[in-house]
Simulated assay, not measured.
Amino acid sequence: MKSCLPPDPNPTKPQHTMPALACDAHCHVFGPADRFPYAPDRSYTPPDAPYEHLLALHDWLGFQRGVIVQASCHGTDNTAMIDAIARGNGRYRGVAIVDDHIDEAGLHALNEGGVRAVRFNFVQHLGGRPDMQVFWRVMERVEAMGWHVVLHLDANDIVQLQDDVLARLRVPFVIDHMGRVRAQDGLEQMPFRLLVQLMRDNPLAWVKVCGAERVSVGKRPFDDAIAFAQTLIETAPDRVLWGTDFPHPNISKDMPNDGGLVDLMFRFCPDADLRQKLLVGNPARLYDFA
Score class of each variant (00 low, 15 high):
residue 222 F to P: 02
residue 132 M to D: 06
residue 78 N to Q: 02
residue 67 V to F: 00
residue 260 G to C: 14
residue 235 T to L: 15
residue 256 P to A: 06
residue 154 D to K: 12
residue 229 A to T: 07
residue 79 T to M: 03
residue 255 M to H: 06
residue 229 A to P: 04
residue 102 I to T: 14
residue 150 V to K: 06
residue 258 D to K: 07
residue 266 F to E: 03
residue 30 F to D: 03
residue 277 K to N: 15
residue 193 R to Q: 11
residue 5 L to Q: 07
residue 86 A to F: 02
residue 50 P to H: 03
residue 253 K to P: 04
residue 248 H to D: 02
residue 203 P to H: 14
residue 39 A to F: 15
residue 111 N to M: 10
residue 46 P to D: 04
residue 11 P to V: 12
residue 216 S to P: 09
residue 16 H to N: 14
residue 101 H to S: 15
residue 260 G to D: 08
residue 139 M to V: 07
residue 136 W to D: 04
residue 121 N to Y: 13
residue 212 A to W: 01
residue 68 I to K: 03
residue 55 L to G: 03
residue 64 Q to S: 15
residue 268 F to M: 12
residue 140 E to V: 14
residue 222 F to C: 12
residue 58 H to R: 05
residue 163 D to I: 05
residue 41 D to C: 15
residue 58 H to L: 10
residue 57 L to W: 00
residue 57 L to D: 04
residue 24 D to S: 04
residue 90 G to Q: 11
residue 17 T to A: 12
residue 72 S to M: 13
residue 37 P to K: 08
residue 241 L to S: 06
residue 289 F to C: 14
residue 232 L to C: 12
residue 5 L to T: 07
residue 225 A to I: 07
residue 261 L to V: 08
residue 173 F to E: 02
residue 113 G to C: 02
residue 4 C to L: 09
residue 196 V to Y: 08
residue 122 F to Q: 09
residue 245 D to M: 01
residue 67 V to A: 05
residue 29 V to P: 02
residue 195 L to G: 02
residue 186 G to W: 00
residue 148 H to R: 03
residue 282 N to Y: 15
residue 32 P to T: 00
residue 117 A to P: 01
residue 91 R to M: 08
residue 73 C to A: 12
residue 225 A to K: 07
residue 248 H to F: 01
residue 55 L to K: 02
residue 55 L to C: 06
residue 254 D to K: 01
residue 92 Y to A: 01
residue 133 Q to I: 14
residue 222 F to G: 06
residue 83 D to M: 05
residue 119 R to T: 04
residue 106 G to C: 08
residue 175 I to R: 02
residue 186 G to H: 04
residue 251 I to F: 00
residue 242 W to N: 00
residue 275 R to Q: 11
residue 245 D to R: 05
residue 184 Q to I: 15
residue 19 P to H: 13
residue 248 H to Y: 10
residue 139 M to S: 05
residue 231 T to M: 14
residue 228 F to D: 01
residue 20 A to Q: 15
residue 27 C to A: 02
residue 207 V to W: 05
residue 135 F to G: 03
residue 31 G to E: 01
residue 4 C to V: 10
residue 35 R to K: 01
residue 106 G to S: 10
residue 78 N to I: 04
residue 201 D to N: 09
residue 67 V to M: 00
residue 283 P to W: 11
residue 70 Q to Y: 01
residue 268 F to Y: 13
residue 70 Q to I: 00
residue 53 H to T: 08
residue 97 I to A: 11
residue 3 S to C: 11
residue 175 I to S: 01
residue 15 Q to A: 15
residue 59 D to P: 08
residue 76 T to C: 12
residue 140 E to M: 13
residue 58 H to Y: 00
residue 105 A to S: 09
residue 268 F to I: 09
residue 1 M to E: 12
residue 73 C to Y: 12
residue 200 R to N: 11
residue 225 A to C: 11
residue 83 D to E: 05
residue 274 L to R: 15
residue 233 I to Q: 10
residue 118 V to I: 08
residue 3 S to E: 13
residue 278 L to Y: 11
residue 133 Q to Y: 13
residue 107 L to F: 10
residue 26 H to F: 03
residue 47 P to C: 06
residue 47 P to R: 06
residue 191 P to L: 06
residue 219 K to L: 13
